[in-house]
Design a protein around this nucleic acid. Structure first.
Lengths: 108, 108
DNA sequence: TTCTAGTATCTTACATTGCAAGATAGTGAT
DNA sequence: ATCACTATCTTGCAATGTAAGATACTAGAA
């Protein structure tokens, strides 16, 4: 899978998942991995960025299966940013898919 | 428009446009700008990369409207690479759109 | 006990790529 | 001459995904 395609999109996906319910990093990695390839080295730095930008807040929670989990929750600013990103993604992906279809259906 | 979304996608769009017919850089900038924002500083370095990788070949052609145009043409390797990219994009964008829909239709 | 596997978080160095800004130059109209 | 449009190119910068590795808790197997 082309790593470049994921730039920016991963951030949107994480925020969309957090908009549904709070999740911890390891959980996000596995959740997203069901849709497309992703690694921990992408998720943890991203979560740190979202925290710095004030788009998420965090809290720790004990676990019986291993070390404590760090849950992430979307803030109001995060909800706003997520909605903006999704709008842009929808416009962009629609434009790109349109171009691809037009250019491949008639093959020069 | 989120610049990150375009990473990798711009390359695919250029190759899709070149698969339809040969084009020159300035033309590509304006063609793509009708779909989404793009600048010359993105296109010319990209075309140079595609040339280095052997995905396109070039030829000069005089113009009555200004300086000579440098046309780009997809090579066989370029056609193969383009088709691979389009497959990956279709899989990826479908997965992302699916995730977004699922996470926003039920809003946590 | 020791080892392994699964769960969970974090950091560092690196590669890629889009963009702003600016340079260069030909054509043609004001 | 000056401006606008056409056309190409380069440089430095910013952003982000990835590999690779470190750390540490739990639980079962050898």
């Amino acid at each position: 899978m082309n790593a470049q395609f994921k730039k920016g999109v991963l951030e949107m996906c994480v925020m969309a998942l957090l908009g549904f319910r709070d999740r911890y990093g390891y959980e996000l990695v596995h959740e997203i991995s069901e849709r497309f390839e992703i690694s921990e080295g992408s998720i943890y730095p991203l979560l740190r960025r979202l925290l710095t930008e004030g788009y998420v807040s965090t809290y720790l929670q004990e676990s019986v299966e291993g070390p404590a989990r760090k849950y992430y929750s979307l803030t109001e600013n995060g909800i706003f940013a997520r909605d903006e990103l999704i709008k842009e993604w929808n416009d962009f992906s629609t434009a790109v898919c349109g171009l691809i279809e037009e250019m491949t259906n008639a093959e020069g």
